[in-house]
Design a protein around this nucleic acid. Structure first.
Lengths: 130, 130
DNA sequence: TATAGTAGGTACCTAGAGGAAAGCGACTAT
DNA sequence: ATAGTCGCTTTCCTCTAGGTACCTACTATA
């Protein structure tokens, strides 16, 4: 798979999924998963409301859904304390933490190139006779 | 930005967007953009129908939409030849090609860890009293 | 008494993404 | 005369992610 600089020729062999990274993208980059993983990694172990407040705009329903999915995928570990009031803690797993260099790479690319994207958008919007 | 192992503390300062990579994710990892970029990079310059056939499951309407978006973001270069029948060619831009190591990193992580995700899902589904 | 906090679950609703299918304009090949 | 090619565009339809609002049981606090 990683036999060359990254872009393999596997796309030619699989017409259905022309991109060998699509499986990862669904797991890691579906909506809300990156902010959740990022927050859990920067702040360590967090309770539900803490996570909710740090992310700021997510609704509890969606947060629950995404946390369940991330737990099922082994990216997040959930610890339930049967107290009153109930206490639940979430932390990033070893598998989730292994994404750190990837996210670093992504943030690096963003810092270096996001303004180029902005520039390209501006050029497109002004030059193209919409 | 890249002052530590990758996960910066920027999340704490921005409650609205708790993840500094969210901007990139919308550009690079929104639906269909990864297969398109991947195919354009592996096959070089391609015509509309060629792209359509290589991806296989995308509809022309969606392909047009994504190509316009990628063109506006400066990731793809579109060349129109006013012939009959019309001929249009798409190729990946320099900016788009700069994503190659990132995609390589992603494919590498996938090759190393996708089976762990599968295992975690299986464990979750069998252990959890759904 | 009543309110707040905790970790969600549930029912309902809407907006938007995406799929299916047809068309179009200008020409060519059969 | 008919069908086909190319790169879309348009219309219609469906599906679902996500938002809003309200609910639980139990306790501590005012």
């Amino acid at each position: 798979m990683a036999d060359n600089a990254g872009w393999t020729a596997a796309a030619a062999t699989d017409p259905q999924l022309a991109c060998p990274t699509s499986g990862v993208v669904d797991i890691v980059f579906s909506r809300w998963t990156t902010p959740i993983l990022w927050t859990l990694n920067t702040h360590g172990r967090l309770r539900f409301v803490e996570l909710e407040r740090l992310i700021g705009t997510i609704t509890p329903k969606v947060l629950t859904q995404r946390l369940r999915q991330l737990e099922r995928d082994g990216m997040v570990v959930r610890t339930y304390h049967p107290e009153v009031p109930p206490r639940v803690e979430y932390e990033i797993s070893e598998l989730g933490r292994s994404l750190a260099p990837l996210f670093a790479h992504l943030a690096e690319w963003a810092a270096a190139n996001l303004d180029k994207v902005e520039q390209a958008r501006h050029d497109y919007d002004t030059d193209t006779p919409r």
